[in-house]
């Protein structure tokens, strides 16, 4: 079995649910619609021997994108020595079915994704922040999250900085880029 045949099988099974399939540097990824993502992973796990979930994460495309987040699952078949990436697009306030019932390793990965992006995983047994403190506001890996400091810190500085001492401006500076909007 190779990547292409897995893609074909998934396409055959889910038809229109598979929105896009691509290959880059020998890696196959399939973009599926969010309502069948869970089903698709279950199919890959149960019937195609993709028994190992490498990671779960998300990509933020910014506030203006139609689908703000892309949730990424990297699966591996130890038997076929094969990897495949399943992706699904969701909107900012949309939640998505947790895959903990299929892959236990998603437990912490999904918690992390929730912590960093604020994506809610339905039916997750224990969805709470993991890396950030429990009273944290905001989701640090979102693209609109400031790079330096939190808004609350500004207020705090206003009160506590010695008189006359200036706050340094808060940046959201990226490395220098000539790419224009």
């Amino acid at each position: 079995m190779d990547g292409q045949s897995v893609v074909e099988l998934v396409k055959g099974k889910f038809g229109d649910g598979v929105l896009e399939a691509s290959e880059f540097r020998g890696e196959y990824s399939i973009l599926v619609s969010s309502n069948i993502a869970h089903e698709c992973l279950k199919y890959l796990h149960d019937e195609l021997n993709f028994e190992y979930l490498v990671f779960v994460t998300a990509v933020d495309f910014g506030i203006d994108a139609e689908y703000r987040f892309q949730v990424v699952y990297e699966l591996r078949s130890l038997l076929h020595k094969l990897q495949i990436r399943v992706k699904t697009n969701i909107k900012e306030n949309q939640d998505i079915e947790s895959v903990v019932d299929i892959y236990k390793s998603a437990t912490w990965d999904e918690r992390e994704t929730y912590d960093m992006f604020g994506i809610i995983f339905r039916n997750h047994p224990d969805l709470r922040r993991i890396l950030m403190p429990q009273d944290w506001t905001g989701y640090p890996l979102r693209k609109d999250y400031p790079l330096k400091g939190r808004p609350e810190d500004d207020d705090w500085l206003d009160k506590h900085l010695p008189l006359g001492q200036l706050k340094r401006p808060r940046h959201t500076r990226k490395p220098f880029s000539l790419v224009q909007k």
């Binding site: 990671f55 994460t57 990509v59 990424v72 990297e74 390793s105 912490w108 880029s177 790419v179």
Partner: peptide, 25 residues
């Protein structure tokens, strides 16, 4: 896991760390 959109910086980089996953079990 690197998601590049053609710029000089990765658009997103996920580090899959063994310690994190092992600890979860």
């Amino acid at each position: 896991y690197i998601y590049s959109n053609g710029e000089g910086v990765p658009y997103r980089m996920k580090i899959r760390s063994p310690s994190f996953i092992n600890l979860s079990a």
